[in-house]
Write a protein that binds this DNA or RNA. Sequence first.
DNA 1: CCTGTCTCTGACAACGTTGTCCATCTCTTG
DNA 2: CAAGAGATGGACAACGTTGTCAGAGACAGG
Lengths: 329, 329
Amino acid sequence: MKDVAARAGVGLKTVSRVVNEEAGVTPDTVARVQAAIDALGFRRNDSARLLRTRRTSSVGLVLEDLADPFYAPLSRAVEDVARSHGALLFTGSSAEDPRREQELVLAFCARRVDGLVVVPASDDHRYLAPEMEAGVATVFVDRPAGRVDADVVLTDNAGGTRDGVAHLIAHGHRRIGFIGDQPSIHTANERLRGYREAMANAALPVLPQWYAMGPTTPDRVRAALAVMLSGPEPVTALFAGNNRVTVTAVRVLSDHPRPVALVGFDDFELADLLSPPVTVVAQDAPGLGRTAAQLLFRRLDGLTTDAPTRTELPARLIPRGSGEIPPSS
Amino acid sequence: MKDVAARAGVGLKTVSRVVNEEAGVTPDTVARVQAAIDALGFRRNDSARLLRTRRTSSVGLVLEDLADPFYAPLSRAVEDVARSHGALLFTGSSAEDPRREQELVLAFCARRVDGLVVVPASDDHRYLAPEMEAGVATVFVDRPAGRVDADVVLTDNAGGTRDGVAHLIAHGHRRIGFIGDQPSIHTANERLRGYREAMANAALPVLPQWYAMGPTTPDRVRAALAVMLSGPEPVTALFAGNNRVTVTAVRVLSDHPRPVALVGFDDFELADLLSPPVTVVAQDAPGLGRTAAQLLFRRLDGLTTDAPTRTELPARLIPRGSGEIPPSS
DNA sequence: CCTGTCTCTGACAACGTTGTCCATCTCTTG
DNA sequence: CAAGAGATGGACAACGTTGTCAGAGACAGG
């Protein structure tokens, strides 16, 4: 910038004015400065600029896995909102590791991002309190924040599961299984709760061998399914607590002698091409991201200074076939 | 930092030394400073730090769509490499729009990223030349750079397609269709070339109605397929030029009276669960990202100052069933 | 006790911008 | 013609950090 000023024969501040398109510069001078800028290939250093203005026009996004088909559209939605507000996006994957989450968040804060969108991997975010007090707007998405008061955008996991299980009950099922993720994950618990509620609403018992919570690796899911499908009171339908469970269940059930109804939480591409097409309870991943980001910018722009809010987006049942299979004994 | 220094009763520089764990500070002083840091909740401002050190420890990633199932793993791989080098990642989606690509790239450069990984949306990157000269390491991935000399990491698109089409030929097909993306996209052209070469190698003719290039929306693909499958010389097999084409083709072909063999470029989740399971030519998306990022950091760390390189990663044929269907007339 | 060496510490400038404030110049108006 | 107003331009400090360099003690040796 110094060089540009020298070459154009003007003061430093005048160049700054031209670069920022401020008023009060003669067209003639503007042209001279512009020429110098082009000649020198000058590009403003935003780090310095932002050091001065104390706004970085960037937000940080921490999620579990950038490559996960559920989170990828979410991050794209956050990006789109950020772009429309002229902000750039830092992204990072926590890989479900609380330490990595914290590292990323603090690294973003050290870069002085204006705001954060976080899919929590931990249940204790007190480490964020000083940052939030210092003015870093923060929105948690998909899972609630832990021990800190902040905006939260969630899917109605319990409600969605309730609907899905009720759908199975409406099709005549009485013995329904549930396989969910580790109980340490909030959404997994909520879905289990929805399952229990739906069963209770229909005055149906839940046998201990009918539900399983834990890591959703294929072999664990297989094992859990084997238990549910055998014994004197085998399930005639399964609610799969997430994507990975659904996929494994499809594989297992296609080899099973008896047809078993299936509803899965989370939609996935090609669900309608499988045989039978898979009935799912779909979350609105882009909606989560969009809502969270919009909330964030509303705070950043000072349009909201209300107390933190909790938003729940509905999940939508999409009947496709596998959830409408009648019970068979 | 000033506050910390005041509170600890030491000089500014001493605090800086403690924060950076530099040697030459009495343990006693370190403790005092550390206490002040904790008490004040101080966190170093990296923007300022990096303004001084002229290294931002961040890289920018521009790709077509963060939410695309092909690019998501690629970006995750770039992120992992960046993390292992202590760098953070800016991401942005160009949405296949050259103007957006340039905006993003220049915004990243204004932030003074150390390096860039770019999936080009344009075929002219001369605008990057000044930045690269100024020291921004740049690697292009998935598609070659335009009018600028830089590192490039590609998939062997032509070779992969050749293998896929040869596979169909080996299974007895003589009339093979090809549906690809817009000719303005480099990979689409390469794949078309591979198709032509494979046919030529087997001394097979390629009728004009057997191949189609253009936007890969479902209805256009449907239309193209309808043409190929009708007439006096209908194709008995199809090579689908990308993911979206494959999916649409699966839908159309499942309704088709005559079985038609199918090989698709790009693997996708659940391809093995469809009936028939879909034979694909799989790219190594994480490999592309990893290779590109490693190349980037090798340059950043000064381990390589050679001329820009061109790396081609092989594509791998995965037979699953749909590509092994014999011709039927 | 003086000198030299070594260790620890701090003052100061610099990084590249922008905000503040003042100087100058050119009009307009009384 | 003087004075005021408005437009234009520049000097300087500041943002929060680090690199450079020199000062202040401590300690050993002559």
